[in-house]
Simulated scan of single mutants.
Amino acid sequence: MAVTEAAPATRPTLLRRLGDWALTALAAAGALCIIAVIAAFVFNITLIMFSTGSMSPAIPAGSVAVVREVPATEIDVGDVVTVERPNALPITHRVTEILDTSGAEVTFTMQGDANADPDPAPYTTDTVRVVLFSVPGLATLISGLQDPLVLGAITVLAAALVTWAFWPRGSPAGSSADPAHRRSGTTV
C-alpha cells in the first residue's frame, strides 16, 4: 500500500499575523470613513475646530466639534451654535436670548461661556450649525496630520503595507500546494 507524504503544517508567522491584523484594522477604518462621509452628506454634519477658549470649560481650545446645520427656527436658549459672519470667521457661542422670529430668519444674542460680556451685536440668520458634541484635544492631532512630512510618511507606510499585502508568496517546498511536488507523485 502506498502512503503519500503529509504536507507540513504551515504556521503563520508573527509578522504575517501582525500584517493581517493591520490590514483588517485599516479596512475597518476605511469602512468607517466611508460611513462617516455618507452620514455627513445625508445628515448635513461637519466638523469645526476651536482655536480659542471662549467656550471653556464646556469646549476648550483645541477641541473638535461635530455640528449639524439646522434652520434657525429650531434653536433654543442654551444651545451652542455656529453662525456664519460676513467678512469674518464663523463664531460658535451659546444662545443667550431669542429676540425675534420673522419667517425663516431668527434674531438672537450669543455669549461665549468663558466671556464676561455677550457678543457685541445680535445675529440674524435663517440657518445655524448646532454643536452635537465635541472632543477635546483632537484639533491638535488633526492639525499635526496636515504637516507635509507627516502626510509623506503616511503615504510611504500605506504604500509599503499595500505592496506587502499583495506581494506574491510562494508555497513551502514539498507542500501539496507546490506544483512540482504534485507532478512528481512522491510516495513513501
Rank of each mutant, 00 (worst) to 15 (best):
T101Y: 00
P118F: 03
I154K: 06
F41M: 13
W167K: 12
V83T: 09
S175L: 12
A6T: 14
P179C: 04
T92R: 08
I98Y: 02
G137V: 11
L15D: 02
P168Q: 13
R94W: 01
A22E: 01
P172Y: 07
V66T: 12
I35M: 07
A29C: 11
R182I: 00
W164C: 06
A28Y: 03
G53Q: 09
L151H: 06
G103H: 07
L89T: 12
I34E: 00
A165Q: 11
L99Y: 02
A31K: 12
V81K: 05
I45K: 09
I142L: 15
T92W: 03
A6E: 11
T186S: 07
A9Q: 14
V83Q: 01
M1L: 14
S176V: 01
T10I: 14
P57D: 04
L47P: 00
L32V: 13
H181I: 00
R11L: 04
S51E: 12
E5S: 09
R68N: 05
A7K: 11
T186Q: 06
V156Y: 05
A9C: 08
V81C: 03
P122G: 12
L141E: 01
L151G: 13
S54I: 03
V67K: 03
N115R: 11
I98S: 04
A72P: 00
G78E: 04
A116H: 09
L15C: 02
D119G: 09
P136C: 02
G30T: 13
W164F: 12
P120Y: 10
P179E: 07
S102H: 06
T125R: 06
A61G: 08
V83P: 00
V162S: 09
V162R: 08
Q111K: 15
P57T: 10
G103V: 10
A160K: 07
G30W: 00
P12V: 00
V156D: 03
A159K: 11
R68S: 09
A61T: 00
E97P: 03
L151M: 15
T140D: 05
P168F: 12
E97Y: 03
T4H: 07
S184P: 00
P179D: 07
G185P: 04
G152F: 14
V95A: 02
I35L: 15
H181Q: 11
V130M: 05
I35A: 15
V156T: 13
L18C: 11
G53T: 11
S176Y: 07
